[in-house]
């Protein structure tokens, strides 16, 4: 475990340094960023979370994400939750859309999602979907809090069974 963390943080540090140079002068708003320097594409092994066909537990699975800008890492990670090639597992976010995932300097990650009506899950589905989002986000040490918005709005609940905290803190 210790070793994994060490490897992971070394990796993150490398990415941060690699990405850092292009960003010092860049606009902190992620959307309208004009990329002066094109950083090399990064590949990162992460854990993504799905559920079993009993919809009972969160099941972690190793996945790989590719991104060029460190800021895109979180959105790339969350998008892995939308599908899995493991037939025994169910991807809980397959019909939803991750619009953005932005990390502020203080470690506050804001995730904006779009949940079409036909993506609404039952009680355990919703809870597991929420947990999968949080676990996937909090595996990055720099993420201290996660605030989930629906279509840019701060709402009480994603699908009407589990309440949202604004924001969720790492516990």
């Amino acid at each position: 475990m210790k070793k994994t963390i060490l490897v992971l943080s070394t990796l993150l540090l490398t990415i941060a340094i690699a990405a850092g140079c292009g960003q010092k002068s860049a606009d902190p708003q992620p959307g309208d960023q004009t990329e002066v320097v094109q950083p090399a594409e990064q590949t990162l092994k992460i854990q993504s979370f799905y559920t079993d066909d009993q919809i009972l537990n969160l099941v972690p699975k190793d996945t790989e994400i590719k991104f060029s800008d460190a800021k895109a890492k979180y959105l790339a990670a969350l998008k892995t939750l939308q599908q899995t090639d493991d037939e025994k597992l169910i991807a809980l976010w397959d019909k939803s859309e991750f619009l953005s995932a932005t990390l502020k300097d203080d470690g506050a990650l804001t995730v904006d999602v779009k949940i079409p009506e036909d993506a609404h899950l039952g009680a355990s589905g919703e809870d597991l979907a929420l947990q999968s989002l949080l676990k996937t986000s909090f595996q990055f040490d720099e993420v201290k809090t996660v605030d989930i918005l629906v279509d840019g709005k701060s709402v009480d609940s994603l699908m009407g069974h589990v309440e949202l905290e604004h924001p969720f803190s790492r516990n």
Partner: peptide, 11 residues
């Protein structure tokens, strides 16, 4: 009282 939903129709 609720009714359930999951993206796997066999359940």
């Amino acid at each position: 009282i609720h009714a359930n939903s999951i993206n796997k129709s066999s359940i």
